[in-house]
Design a protein around this nucleic acid. Structure first.
Ligand SMILES: NC(=O)c1ccc[n+]([C@@H]2O[C@H](COP(=O)([O-])OP(=O)(O)OC[C@H]3O[C@@H](n4cnc5c(N)ncnc54)[C@H](O)[C@@H]3O)[C@@H](O)[C@H]2O)c1
Ligand SMILES: NC(=O)c1ccc[n+]([C@@H]2O[C@H](COP(=O)([O-])OP(=O)(O)OC[C@H]3O[C@@H](n4cnc5c(N)ncnc54)[C@H](O)[C@@H]3O)[C@@H](O)[C@H]2O)c1
Lengths: 220, 220
DNA sequence: GTCGGATTGTGAAAGTGTTCACAAGCATGG
DNA sequence: CCATGCTTGTGAACACTTTCACAATCCGAC
């Protein structure tokens, strides 16, 4: 079987959230149709996504909410706890530390690093900020699996190098720069400014701009 | 010409960043090849992306860094200032207020709203937190174009409804729930937990799990 | 003026992801 | 125990995206 697409994994994450709330509501079964409607996709899409990993439904009835939720949890690795290192104890970093959704999904931020010696030793939500130079040592000691980068963009690449040298293979980067992943290393870049730009593109496009029909777009 | 894909818009945003830094470095021209290498895509991809909007290059030479940057700015709507409302002055909201990249791209957060009366009237980075009930009035007064939702997930849908009722058409949502967009309204959902889940999926998949070859994945 | 080297712009081909459509299969009720 | 109604699982069709490949064309050197 071929590699699973990123889009499928993203949708599984979304289904997982719906299943959790259906379970809370006490619902036992759910059909691909019901799940699809909640996420604006087709029922066939839901079934295809799941069929990549096996057969989990019962024809005529649908899927067991609880079983499907557990299954997706295992697929996504949510059935266990991941130890996460956060680098950069600035405003975004501090917000992320207090983000409860991470912990709820099994992502525990177990260490925060910074290179600002004024911050090192201070606390953020019960976590002592550590000197970035202790990173290699702590990755081993705390059995860290994942890292989050929340440092200014000029420091991001060097922090990524450091993390990779310390043995980490999975990095979530919030600095607005596309970090490159060497083979075997996975880096996901989250860029919030780009999200806003997609909106402003639409705002412009809807109003005045039609592709191929826009004289003032020609280079000056 | 057909509708431009989201992927293309995202890449334009990324090219834009490279162009800005090339311009700072004083470079005059850039080839599709050079731009492609910076972003891990093919040169053909770069050219196709640009060709959706017109012809901006010179054969044999490449693209003028400065002109191409301005052109993309116009396509994405970065040549002007957008007034942004932020709803939710919690930890994420406060981080977003101090996020300089937004302002640099022309996204000015001009108002912050909250429903917690203890917070209303207090300041965040020079912005006074306003009572959410004043939102409709302020959208008009401040000519607000875009909104960012940074409230807990249970409040997100009702805040979205409120924003739409106040006349806003573009919303960036950070609550971990997929808000649905009625026709004419665009909502982009940013879900950071999903980003981590994509990483943990890979971590699990790389180690032990191969699709279609995983006995313990069968429902219990 | 024209030749050579370089790079664009773009149809066509290849590759991916999504939707369709229906046989297969299960639970329930008579 | 079989007919009925519903929903899954999946190959095939379709749609969209990316890559290929090359003619078009521009600059600068001679
Ligand atoms: N603030 C936001 O809302 C927001 C939103 C999206 C993305 N971002 C991005 O996230 C990153 C952090 O943003 P922020 O607003 O928290 O910035 P910040 O300046 O508040 O914090 C950055 C922190 O990183 C530390 N740091 C700098 N270099 C370091 C290094 N080499 N090693 C370890 N630590 C180092 C600094 O000491 C500081 O504590 C930036 O790249 C920013 O563009 C921020
Ligand atoms: N903290 C993070 O790093 C982080 C990261 C990603 C996503 N998020 C999401 O962003 C949202 C906000 O997170 P947070 O950590 O800032 O939470 P928070 O509790 O610190 O802040 C939420 C704010 O929203 C306000 N609020 C609640 N209901 C409201 C309403 N109906 N109208 C106006 N304001 C209202 C609250 O008074 C509070 O000030 C949540 O949905 C969270 O899941 C947070």
């Amino acid at each position: 079987m071929s590699r699973i697409s990123d889009a499928t994994i993203t949708r599984l994450s979304q289904y997982y959230r719906s299943l959790a709330s259906l379970e809370e509501g006490g619902q036992e079964m759910v059909s691909s149709m019901a799940l699809a409607r909640k996420h604006g996709v087709t029922p066939a899409q839901v079934r295809k996504d799941l069929s990549c990993f096996g057969q989990f439904g019962t024809r005529g009835l649908g899927y067991s909410v609880c079983q499907l939720k557990e299954t997706i949890a295992r697929i996504l690795g949510l059935h266990r706890i991941w130890n996460v290192a956060l680098v950069g104890a600035g405003s975004l970093g501090s917000a992320l530390i207090s983000y409860k959704e991470f912990k709820r999904q099994g992502f525990h931020i177990v260490a925060v690093f910074d290179n600002d010696l004024d911050k090192v030793g201070k606390k953020r939500r019960g976590l002592t900020i550590l000197d970035i130079r202790r990173l290699p040592q702590m990755v081993k000691k705390l059995d860290i699996n994942l890292a989050i980068i929340a440092v200014p963009k000029d420091a991001a690449q060097s922090v990524a190098d450091l993390l990779i040298k310390a043995g980490l293979k999975m990095i979530l980067n919030f600095a607005p720069i596309s970090l490159k992943a060497s083979p075997g290393i996975t880096i996901r870049n989250v860029n919030m400014a780009i999200e806003l730009e997609a909106l402003s593109y639409r705002l412009v496009a809807d109003k005045s701009f039609r592709p191929g029909n826009n004289p003032q777009l020609t280079p000056v």
